[in-house]
Amino acid sequence: MTLLRRYGFALLVATAVLFPFVFYSSDMQSRKNLSAVEKVVYAFSAPVEFVFRFGTGHVKDALAAYVDLRGAKEEAKRLSEENAKLAVQLQVAGQLENENQRLRTLLDFSRQGALRFLMAQVQSADPSFLYRSIRLGRGENDGVAPGMAVVAAAGAVGMVMRTVSDASDVLLVTDPNANLDVIVARNRRRGILVGGTGNVMQFKYFDRGTRLLVGDEIVTSGLTGAFPRGIAVGRVSRIKVEEGGASQTIEVEPSVNFAEVSEALILLKPSREVEVIRKVGGLEWMKRMMEGGADKRSGG
């Protein structure tokens, strides 16, 4: 103990000097799972975290109940009207779905595999304030694995980066480390979106000759990654052309308000057939299949 008292500070200084050297020389890529030490810490801290979450959840619910009661009657009326409109739109969409399926059958397209979802509560966010990520209350025990896509009612949320037994960390689409393969809904032109500073994303790459307008809706392409096609990502909010017109910066505002998201859907693995076609064949292969099918039917 005397030795510790005498040399303890010197030892700590040595640790403080050496630790950064070891840390910065290691491989710093985010791992798919927690390390052994982190798992032990998580296991020990989980009961404390549960108590904290239970307590703050009740406080939040009590506050929300008071706030929600105000204007509840007007809100109910507004929702009832919106529901009626949506019911009509759903019927129209149902007709379009049937027509789409008939056309796909005619063109000999394979059926897109049915998607399976898992609902999860948003628990917390990254306390480092550096990474834009959230923690969901579903993990390995529920079949969640790294790489799975996460969506909300409004659109794409992010991708599962790592999992533990009963929770998973999701990197949001607005994080600078996130890349998303997207298309412009208006003209089907393809591009890659990356997260940036603030709550916006930017186009990193897009097809040559693409013309974008402020307000254009951006959706997932479904060609790479875990997101199926057609999931809303955001809208073009600003187009800044650099001097000389050689390059431009296109900002996209996400369709999801991440501060208000309290629940999200985790997309479990799609059917293997769809996954193989998407990953192995891609768009060009599907085009060739379509052209080959059309030739067969015309007798050419």
Binding site: F19, F23, S26, M28, Q29, S30, R31, L34, S35, E38, V41, Y42, S45, S124, D126, P127, S128, L130, Y131, S133, R135, M161, R162, D169, L171
Partner: peptide, 9 residues
């Protein structure tokens, strides 16, 4: 560390 996606350590 267990709550964040920051590099391990």
């Amino acid at each position: 560390q267990s709550l964040s996606l920051a590099p391990s350590g």
